[in-house]
Nucleic acid binder design. Structure first.
Length: 879
RNA sequence: GGGCGCGUAGCUCAAUGGCUAGAGCGCUGUCUUCACACGGCAGAGGUUGGAGGUUCGAUACCUCCCGCGCCCACCA
């Protein structure tokens, strides 16, 4: 017999259990292990990271999935790893350097990278250790890093092959420049935030040899939110059909600060409704203007340095000023020259770097790009055809739309930490793409690849690609990818594209998107709001199981997940409830372990009922597990465990367990053991620790390879039993009514009395009076044909009849009358509703037969009840 | 500007077009009975955002409105 402490203490056992699982290789899989392959690759957390609630959710879901599949006998592997997270990691280490008064340039490239590796070695494993605290059942023997030796080989191969296929090219194009991190960014690394800026209007005067046409003697007014870019203006555009401006098309204006002129051109892009209807064109610093510049073959003048200051070439008196200082200075100068027309507030979207939060500057630059169109089209087809399914499906739609509008991907970053681009530049300007230096006079491209370029390979490089390994053949394509919808664009889309390109297959069959974890009111967690919850605190205080369960119970696919400390505490209480249910069982089972159920004829009503309800919960939870509907998984199991098993069955089973009849007691124990065993199995993927501890206690399993984590996933132990459910529901109804009677009349539970029951369900109820007596605290239950009219009786009404007991000082008559009146009013209201329904001919004609029949039954029952209530009230009043 | 999602009890959320719209937390009362006070029992609490429509019947389907949130997008 196992002796459990009175209250569950997660901290006492979690670490030890985890070590035991790992020691026994419970999480490790080999390619030739038995079972159908099932694989998940972890979305690799940043090496800089520490576990936050988002990770906790993401990994809890993956763990629940992989644990269930493992129990189902699959050859299940969950491969963990870390992302080198180029820009994020470099930023962290640069900050450390800054604290020492250094920049990365002081160290130089090699020393800096060495420094990052050193830091990675010291603290890179933190988040993986934290995953262990959460209970994540990763196969740690397969841990990988996006920047390790093996992954490097793959990254280089992919780059070189794509280049050879013409899908990677180098180009001088307008890209998003982050002037703080000093690197190019891809489009999706730019976040558009609404900002209240200003719209400045100023005028360009006509070129000296070109007086303005009638109506435009004073020049041409243009508007801009970034006045400083006028240093790079090379045209003014108007709409070709804008009659106001027909006369000025082809004329030239002069630049106020530079010795040059440029033309007024016509382009359909211009919206005549906006501003003055004339747009200044800066092809080198604005995406629209860039397009116009290409169409009209305009000069592209870059007027900013990479650090965001105005350059010498076109800056003139403004050279060296920061772009925002320049904005002010230029407006001031324009004003002095009498050229500034007005400045008014303007709300618009401004692109910010998702990393540094700096305002992104569109810049012309030489960068490497991936031509994504053909791969994107294939990826769209993968989703359309259902070869990749999204859960929830609406996110698949969104995914397709995004792929349809995808532009080429700028993959070069002006950073040091990351995969160096395998391209070599010759003094002559020639470029070669290959792993090793072509020889003397060749310099390797200084840039590194976007972090996502390497993580897109994750689902196959984890299994050894480009080698043709047995692991790759076994576990690729992977089964399910679990991730927040927020990185579908960054990561998921690119995995689909690149997997198809290089392995000819989609990398996974299912993408399960969960939402983002928010606070209890749906607000984003952030340091500035002070509403951040640290999952490690939760685990320390309430246990990993409670933390996991609290996350899962709100994690409907694709829907953001609210979380509050109190809710986690609530799930700790659930764990404690389970703990105590098992504590009760273990102290009473006397060594009975889960095995065969007693034959049907020896099962009592409560046995049949609990088995039927268990099967209902199992079926519901299992189906929900299958479609990753976590709230239903949690709700069905929690409510069975607490509201049915603990609240009713454990109470009713005491009758036999504490009773004299040893055969009955042993049948009861057998059923109890089976039910608990199955419940623990069903809950294990969500709450691995407490279920493992309790299951070992229940079964006597030794741990190690004899772990619940390796036990079989439950199938139906019995069928649903509608008859038992109906009968037991009646028992519950009568018990509840008796309790209500007690509660409302101040009759203490320990005051026992006899009950005369008049019911049309006598046959159903009669065999179960023992349970009835135990649960309702009755001396005796007698069945009578008709309820006595004796005014000296208290009446307890239930759905199928009425029960009476001598008042004999039990209750307060006045109170009872008022209670009955209330109930009568309620019943009359209900009857009115039913009668109205049945009087409606079209209802009777059109509703399904069972529905109409049920209505009729309710009508009769309600009428009977009203009669009874009325007579009861009058008899009481007679007293 | 385009697309998507959401408005149900004080809070967070459920309810194949059909029983009296449910659960958890919170709240009220009550009980320390031998699994559990991290608990039991009982209870209060709803014009399902608003207005129309379809239907015998709408929380659910349709239209419009109001409010909230997210994604995408190059209007200076």
């Amino acid at each position: 017999m196992v002796d459990l402490p009175k209250a569950y203490d997660p901290a006492a056992s979690e670490a030890e259990l985890y070590a035991d699982w790992v020691e026994a290789g419970v999480f490790h899989a080999e390619h030739d292990d038995p079972g159908e392959p099932f694989s998940i690759v972890i979305p690799p957390p940043n090496v800089t990271g520490s576990l936050h609630v988002g990770h906790a959710l993401d990994n809890t879901i993956q763990d629940a999935i992989i644990r269930r599949e493992r129990m189902r006998g699959k050859n299940a592997v969950w491969v963990p790893g870390l992302d080198h997270a180029g820009i994020a990691t470099q930023t962290v280490v640069e900050k450390q350097l800054a604290a020492e008064g250094l920049t990365r340039h002081d160290l130089g490239r090699e020393a800096f990278i060495e420094r990052v590796w050193k830091w990675k070695a010291e603290s890179g494993g933190t988040i993986l250790d934290q995953l262990k605290q959460l209970g994540a059942s990763c196969d740690w023997e397969r841990e990988a890093f996006t920047f390790d030796e093996q992954r490097n080989v793959a990254v280089e191969k992919v780059f070189i092959d794509l280049y050879d296929q013409g899908l990677i090219y180098r180009g001088n194009r307008l890209i998003n420049w982050d002037p703080v991190a000093n690197t190019a960014l891809s489009d999706i690394e730019v976040e558009h935030d609404e900002v209240t800026g200003e719209l400045a209007s100023f005028r360009y005067l006509w070129a000296d040899d070109e007086p303005g046409p009638a109506g435009f003697e004073d020049g041409l007014v243009v508007a801009t939110t970034r006045a400083e870019t006028m240093l790079g203006d090379t045209a003014i555009a108007v709409h070709p059909e804008d009659e106001r401006y027909t006369a000025v098309i082809g004329r030239h204006v002069k630049h106020p600060f530079q010795d040059r002129t440029f033309a007024v051109i016509a382009d359909e892009y211009v919206d005549p409704e906006f501003g003055s209807g004339a747009v200044k064109i800066t092809p080198a610093h604005d995406p629209n203007d860039y397009e116009i510049g290409l169409r009209h073959d305009l000069p592209m003048l870059t007027m900013l340095n990479l650090d965001g200051t105005v350059n010498d070439e076109h800056g003139g008196e403004f050279a060296g000023l920061d772009r925002f200082e320049a904005r002010t200075a230029i407006k001031a100068r324009l004003d002095e020259l009498g050229l500034l027309v007005e400045v008014k507030p303007h709300v618009h979207q401004v692109g910010h770097s998702s990393r540094s939060k700096a305002v992104v500057e569109p810049m012309l630059s030489d960068q490497w790009f991936v031509d994504v169109r053909s791969m994107a089209d294939k990826a769209i087809e993968s989703v359309r055809s259902g070869r990749v399914t999204f859960i929830p499906s609406r996110l698949g739609e969104q995914f397709i739309v995004w792929l349809e509008n995808l532009h080429d991907w700028c993959i070069s970053r002006q950073l040091w930490w990351g995969h160096r681009i395998p391209a070599w530049h010759h003094e002559s300007g020639e470029i070669k793409v290959q792993s090793d230096s072509p020889g003397e006079g060749w310099e390797q491209d200084p840039d590194v690849l976007d972090t996502w370029f390497s993580s897109q390979l994750w689902p196959f490089v984890l299994f050894g690609w480009p080698e043709d390994t047995p692991e790759l053949r076994t576990w690729f394509p992977t089964s399910t990818l679990v991730t927040g919808y927020d990185i579908n664009t960054f990561w998921v889309a690119r995995m689909v594209m690149i997997s198809e390109q290089f392995l000819g297959k989609e990398p996974f069959a299912i993408v399960h998107n969960h939402g983002l974890v928010r606070d209890e009111h749906g607000k984003k967690m952030s340091k500035s709001f002070g509403n951040v919850i640290d999952p490690l605190d939760l685990i320390a205080e309430f246990g990993a199981d409670a933390t996991r369960f609290a996350l899962l119970r709100s994690a409907a696919p694709g829907v953001d997940v609210p979380l509050a400390r109190d809710w986690v505490e609530g799930e700790k209480k659930f764990a404690n409830k389970l703990w105590n249910a098992l504590r009760f069982a273990l102290s009473n089972l006397d060594g009975v372990t889960p095995g065969e159920l007693p034959p049907p004829e020896r099962r009592t009503l409560d046995d049949r009922w609990v088995l039927s309800r268990l099967e209902a919960a199992r079926a519901e939870a299992d189906a929900a597990y299958e479609v990753y509907d976590w709230p239903i998984v949690c709700r069905s199991l929690r409510s069975f465990a607490w509201n049915e098993l603990a609240d009713w069955y454990l109470e009713s089973v005491k009758v036999r367990i504490y009773g004299e009849d040893e055969a009955a007691a042993s049948d009861a124990k057998a059923v109890l053991a089976v039910v608990l065993d199955e419940l623990l199995r069903l809950l294990h993927p969500t709450m691995p620790f407490v279920t493992e501890t309790l299951w070992r206690g229940l079964t006597g399993a030794a741990g190690g390879r004899e772990s619940l984590a390796l036990a079989a996933w439950p199938t139906a132990v019995s069928e649903r039993d509608p008859e038992a459910e109906e009968a037991f529901a009646l028992v519950q109804d009568l018990v509840t009514e008796v309790r209500r009677f007690r509660s409302q009349n101040g009759v203490a539970d320990k005051v026992r009395f006899a009950l005369d029951v008049a019911t049309d369900a006598r046959e159903l109820l009669a065999p179960h009076t023992t349970v009835l007596r135990a649960l309702a605290g009755l001396d005796e239950v007698r069945f009578v044909d008709e309820a006595s009219e004796d005014p000296g009786l208290a009446r307890v009404l239930f759905s199928r009849g009425v029960a009476t007991t001598p008042l004999a000082g039990l209750i307060d008559v006045e109170e009872e009358i008022s209670r009955l009146r209330k109930e009568l009013g309620k019943a009359e209201g209900m009857l009115k509703g039913i009668a109205g329904k049945l009087a409606n001919d079209s209802f009777v004609a059109n509703a399904p037969e069972q529905v109409v029949a049920a209505e009729r039954e309710r009508q009769v029952a309600t009428e009977t009840r009203i009669d009874e209530l009325a007579s009861q009230i009058s008899t009481l009043e007679a007293l």
